[in-house]
Every structure is written in C-alpha cells, then in structure tokens.
Design a protein around this nucleic acid. Structure first.
Lengths: 233, 233
DNA sequence: ATGAGACATATTTTCGAAAATACTTAAAAT
DNA sequence: ATTTTAAGTATTTTCGAAAATATGTCTCAT
C-alpha cells in the first residue's frame, strides 16, 4: 500500500496506535518533546498524521508509563522532570533490578549466557568504533538497553520485567538530559564488563552490588550535571 | 443533567473513559467477567452505554494494569488466571510491599499512625458486625484495601505505590476466586492486628516479616482452594 | 481602578459511521 | 479424503465531526 507522505504509516507495532505511542515515547525520552510541554491534539495530529482518537489511545498508554501526565479535562503534558522524581525512580529501579538480577543468575541457562556475552560484545564494538561521545549515539543506546535487558532476561518474572522496562524508559530521559550538559562522557565500559563477569560467574552477591551501584552512580551524575535544567521538587 | 437510562453516566472519575475503566476493573476483579472471556465491543457497548472509542481507551488502560490482554488485530480478552501468574504476582507483591513497609515505618508521622489505627478499627468493626463470610462483603473488601494502603502510605514513593496498587487489584481477583471455593473463611483479624502493632511500634523487621508471610499465606490458600478453576500454566 | 458576570474562543472529550483486518464457511481441485 | 481458494461474515481499528468543558477577554457596575 503506497500511502501519501501526509498519511501516517505503521513502522513498528502492528496497530497504528501502538506505533504512535512508540514514536511519542521516543520523542519524550530524547527530550525532543520537553518536560512540562503541553501536548495539544492539533499539534500532535499535524506531526503524526493520526486522528484525535488514535492519539488519545497512545497518550493513555504513556500516562500509565509515567512519561505523560493527564490533568483531566485540561489535557495532557509531558511528565515533569524533578530531583524528587529522579530519586524515587532510582530507588524503585534498584529494588527491582537487583531482585531480577539475582534470580536471573539462579535460573539462567546456556542461552542466557550467550545473550549476555553477545550483547556486551556488540556494545564494546560500538564503543571502539566511536570512542568519543558514544552516549548520544542511537546505536549505542539500543545496544546498552539490550545488554541490561539480557542480564535480567532469565528471571522468569513477566510482571517485574514489564515494570522494569517502563522504569528504564523513564530513566533514559534523565540520562539523555545529563548527557546534554556533561563535559565529557563517563566510561561505563569497565562497569559493564565487571557486571557480565559476575553474572556469568554466577556470583550473585557481587553482580547485585554492581548493578545497584551502577544505577546509583548514574543517577548521582544526572543530578550533578542536569540539576540546572531540573525543576525543583 | 438528567440523562436517559440508556446513556452512560459518570459516577467515579471525571472523564467517562476513566469511569468505564473503573467499572470494568471492578467487574473483572470480582469475576463477573470471567478469565479468558473475550471482550467484544458490541457487548460492552450495550452494557456500559459508551462508544467504541471510549471503551477502547478504558481497555488500553486495563491492559497496562495486567487485567486485560490485547491480541493485536484480534481484540481484547480478560487476562487469564494461572498458577504461574499467581506465583509471579506474589513474588512481585512481596518484594515491593516489604520495601514500602520498611520505609513507611521509617518515615511515618503522627497522621500515618492515625490512618493505620483508624483503618484497622473500621475493619474490625465490620468483622464484628458480620462475623461469617465477611470476605465476600464489599464493605469489608474496601476497608481491607484501605488498611493495607494505610500501612505503606508514608513511604513517599509514588512510583512503587502505583505499581503496588495495580498488583493489589490483580491479586484481589485471585482472592475472590479463592473465596468462592473455600469451605470457611480464614481468620485474618489476628494477622492484621499484629501487623498494626509492629508498624506502630516501629519494629520494621517484624512488620516486614509479617506482611511477607501474610501475602504468601494468602497466595498459598488461593492456590489450594482455587486450583480447580485455574488453568494450567 | 477593581471585581463580577457574560460572551467568545480554544481545547478536550465523546460519538457513530466508514475502512481495514481477521475469521468462517463452502466449493473446487488435486 | 485432504488441501487450497474464494467469498462472505464478524470484529476491530481509524477517522473527523459534534458535544462538552475550560480558558481568556471584554463590558459594566461599584
């Protein structure tokens, strides 16, 4: 089907609504849509080429993920970015990620080990190719996400995994914000390798300590470098 | 505004969609809408008196809460009920509730203590009035929910609290299922009082152990009494 | 000058029909 | 007899207009 340029086209999900949600999520996370920016239907309709109804469904979904807030009868806006929210988010992420990590290490099979190793390998390759400023690289971000996802992928806990993924998205927005103001990128390569080795070596305690500290450190850096653009709680 | 009987009317939320979501959630949790039952738009439109679009928004919301599953292009159905899901849910609930409980005890102020004590008092009164079979009592369920909500209400963690509430709803469906097949109701009154005393006494370790065991025991009972109606994982 | 009330405007929320997609039944060919 | 194809039916998904609600502006009385 050869649709016109104006008409919306599905790329990712199967339904248009889920596709719009995906694109909106990306624009919010990368801060193309700024925190607190109000999401007017007319404007969105223009840039996404979908109808009121379809946009509404996508927005409803993003509200439940915490990336959009709805003031009933007064429309939607991009969720604010605050120090309070960052702390809340960081705490929740550490609690859940540590639990998933421990159980993934307990239950992980050969396939899990392969997923962890290969995703780290890909990440390292991208870092080699673009040693400078890889944190703003879209390819690196996808690989980074996949590595962390691989680590917890054997936990066998769909509920917590779904929550984890949602929180990861919310955190990515803060990471991007931090990257915009950080003088030079932090070197996470060492941390990632240590994480992989502890996981594959089935050293659960160490892996959990590492992931907790990894998340906490990232959060601290965000607070440090992006505090200027984060509105007060 | 005096609308006709056929027309949908707002009762709870401000928008019709959130109201429909609320009513649908209730029907699913109480098993008036049975697990795996497919949710056809025409039928729903008839019983709720809302349009396709509004129902769709409500369903999208419930999908993100795990009470409804969407098979894209093939419609929505009530989320299945399985032993696997129950275990997954129980694990997640214990992890999160214990964390919230500990921090609530740390941070709780006078108002928090009052909320805990008064909500337990109300719960006890309802149990006195209707000693038999109170678990199927709507009033008791609301009070029960409020007591548990009060316990963790001082944690100061909006993210985890939102997840907790969603998981509580999912668990309520299993509790109701269990109550339908249980020979005689379990006496939770003692557990609830002990929980209150540990919390108010700022005995965090004991309160956490109690809440974990409370959730786990309930889950075990569900598995015991409702296993007949729970489809295999 | 200031505040209240009413009109006008902007925006969201809801609706039911039209388009798109999947499922079912039946007929035909191998 | 079994599989394939095709047409028809059922259901979901998308659309843009109409209704409902909030916001902003202007007038008028105090």
């Amino acid at each position: 089907m050869t649709t016109t340029a104006l008409k919306a086209r599905k790329e990712f999900g199967k339904t248009l609504a889920s596709d719009i949600a995906h694109r909106l999520r990306n624009e919010i996370v990368t801060c193309q849509l700024k925190p607190n920016e109000s999401l007017k239907f007319d404007a969105l309709r223009l840039s996404f080429g979908a109808s009121f109804t379809t946009l509404r469904e996508a927005l409803t979904l993003l509200v439940s993920e915490g990336l959009v807030v709805a003031e009933e009868q007064r429309g939607y806006k991009v969720a604010p970015v605050t120090l309070e929210d960052l702390h809340d988010l960081t705490h929740a992420r550490i609690l859940i990620e540590v639990d998933l990590m421990r159980r993934s290490i307990e239950k992980g099979d050969d396939d899990w080990e392969i997923r962890v190793i290969s995703s780290l390998h890909r990440l390292a390759r991208i870092e080699e190719r673009a040693p400078e400023d890889y944190a703003s690289n879209t390819e690196w971000k996808a690989a980074h996400r996949q590595f962390h996802e691989a680590l917890v992928s054997a936990s066998g806990s769909p509920t917590l995994l779904a929550v984890r993924n949602s929180l990861f998205d919310r955190a990515e927005r803060y990471r991007n914000l931090s990257a915009m103001f950080r003088p030079h990128p932090r070197d996470k390569a060492g941390e990632h390798r240590a994480l992989m080795q502890a996981a594959i070596g089935r050293n659960a305690d160490q892996a959990c300590a590492l992931i907790a500290s990894h998340i906490q450190t990232t959060s601290n850096n965000v607070a440090k470098y992006a505090s200027g653009v984060i509105s007060a709680g």
